[in-house]
């Protein structure tokens, strides 16, 4: 066998491997789309694409439950969580990233430790707290409880970002007599656009996808978020699930996320690795 033939074969094998990888990552979502477009008994036939796309499944999802309302619920919760955690985290990150004080490292590692908390470990205490605040079956209960996983992460990533901003900027502002609050909001905040987008996106995705708290702290279908709504369609009998509808609902809530991820691919990767590698 000649050398160039062997090289070509090697290249072919490599591309074949990549093709397998591509199919492996994409096929399940492709299959969800295909299923969501099948009408009636066609769902139960393994045709690789819908013969006549049945858009009706997407209409039925909104008729059988307050799905529109549930999407708005998820949006409200996720957006509130992002804004609140970013506001709290920017201030905290300035203190942790730029002002040396005793116990700073311990504090940082404690915050990182909180992000490792299993949600179940705070479930009963959180439930009691939420009932005491009168927020059971209220979306605000989710906005509050989601802070447990978005806040540590945003503080951590923004702190690493703050640390790398040039010192001269701050010194110039101090000479001009700017207070720390002015430095954060007028000098640093405008520079933090990219970092805020990255952490905000990751916090948004985490809040949008959360299941356990939403399952426990909300009751009526008007207050449910999307993951609970989709997770609970499975409820009744195991034999006659409305698979086409479940897949239609799944596609609706996933497409925006996939678009976000594709658009902000680089930012998301750098945000994900900032937490782990730089930590």
């Amino acid at each position: 066998m000649s050398r160039s033939l062997r090289q070509n074969l090697g290249r072919l094998a490599f591309y074949l491997l990549l093709a397998v990888l591509l199919v492996y990552t994409i096929f399940p979502f492709y299959w969800a789309i295909v299923t969501s477009l099948k009408a009636g008994s066609e769902v139960f036939q393994p045709t690789p694409f819908p013969l006549r796309p049945a858009w009706n499944n997407y209409v039925v999802v909104f008729q059988e439950q307050p799905f529109g309302r549930q999407i708005l619920n998820s949006l409200f919760v996720a957006v509130s969580v992002v804004l609140l955690s970013l506001a709290l985290a920017v201030l905290a990150a300035f203190a942790l990233g730029r002002i040396p004080f005793k116990g700073r490292r311990l504090l940082l590692f404690t915050i990182l430790g909180v992000s490792m908390f299993p949600q179940i470990a705070v479930l009963s205490g959180m439930f009691e707290l939420i009932r005491w605040m009168g927020l059971y079956n209220n979306l605000l209960s989710l906005v509050i409880s989601y802070m447990i996983f978005t806040l540590p992460f945003t503080v951590w990533v923004l702190t690493t970002f703050m640390r790398e901003l040039p010192k001269e900027l701050e010194e110039a502002a101090i000479v001009d007599g700017a207070s720390p609050f002015v430095i954060v909001t007028q000098v640093f905040l405008p520079l933090m656009g990219p970092a805020l987008v990255t952490t905000g996106l990751l916090a948004f995705i985490a809040a949008w996808n959360e299941f356990l708290f939403a399952l426990t702290f909300t009751l009526s279908s008007e207050q449910r978020t999307v993951p609970v709504a989709i997770g609970l369609i499975s409820g009744a009998s195991a034999f006659e699930l409305p698979w086409a509808n479940i897949m239609a609902a799944s596609v609706i809530v996933t497409v925006p996320l996939i678009l976000l991820v594709l658009v902000f691919q680089r930012r998301i990767v750098s945000g994900l690795t900032a937490g782990a590698v730089k930590g």
Binding site: L22, F29, N209, P227, I230, S250, V269
Partner: peptide, 19 residues
């Protein structure tokens, strides 16, 4: 390919489970 690899990560866990 790098973008495609991110797709499973982005899909909500509940949706993955149902799919």
């Amino acid at each position: 390919l790098r973008a495609a690899v991110l797709i499973p990560w982005a899909i909500p866990t509940v949706v993955s489970a149902q799919m």
